[in-house]
Amino acid sequence: MNSYNFAYLDEQTKRMIRRAILKGLAVPGYQVPFASREMPMPYGWGTGGVQVSAAIMTPADRFKVIDQGSDDTTNAVSIRRFFERTAGVEVTETTTEATVIQTRHRIPEMPLTSGQILVYQVPIPEPLRFLEPSEVETRKMHSLEEYGLMHVKLYEDISQHGAIATAYAYPVKVEGRYVMDPSPIPKFDNPKLESPAIQLFGAGREQRIYALPPHTRVVSLDFEDFPFEANKADAACELCAADTSYLDEVIMDDAGHRMFVCSDTDFCASRRAAGHAGIQEAAI
């Protein structure tokens, strides 16, 4: 423990990242470049999120990590252990107890509250990237607010699939200004982007940080005749019977049996602890 600075990164680096975060909070949805550091884990494993978490963490924080809603995947466990060892902070799996939550691909089901910080791991921060390969051009499009292309993408979806088929990383407009990629969360989570908590987005490989201050207006792009819908599988969790949470479809055996369960493990566990039971749980 003594061989590391608190939360692994040196203080100068943390200050640099904090400046980027503050700038991001001041200009919601704007991608701030930052000098991403090498971390003791590969790109794609959340190095952007880890650097943001490290820069904002204090010894008093309680830290939670979720990966696709789950606290117990390899990625979540290793990042949680990383901060346990390098920062010595308290860790938790309970959403309501955490002060800093690092996440990959989900927003917790329990509504976040003022004082909490949600840190997203972002693979590709640029929402226009798949339509316009030039970074110079996309930066210009952001600065001039030229977002017609974003709707071209949605148009293409409808013309090919009859509906907006984009199911995750669904683009949003922030405070009526910047179009932002909310990271690959399911579009079911998009409405939760309007939150009393601070939301920070870190892309390590792409070296970008962006942010949503509390209560920022976040609108999912759509067409008047094809409005945005935050949909989910039309089922209830087979463990806790929740019918309002985002569900994972899990294949149970080689015969192709499958079941729907909450993607948010903490949410599901706390409901079961409170006595809710789904059809599978009841059967056991």
């Binding site: 709707h151 071209v152 293409e156 005749d225």
Partner: peptide, 26 residues
């Protein structure tokens, strides 16, 4: 835009100036 359909190509300028009704754009 070679990777966008003919309809998307034709509709882009309309969307760029604020058209938001898919049916009308089409």
């Amino acid at each position: 835009r070679m990777n966008v359909s003919a309809g998307g190509n034709v509709g882009e300028r309309q969307m760029a100036v604020g058209a938001r009704h898919y049916g009308a754009i089409r």
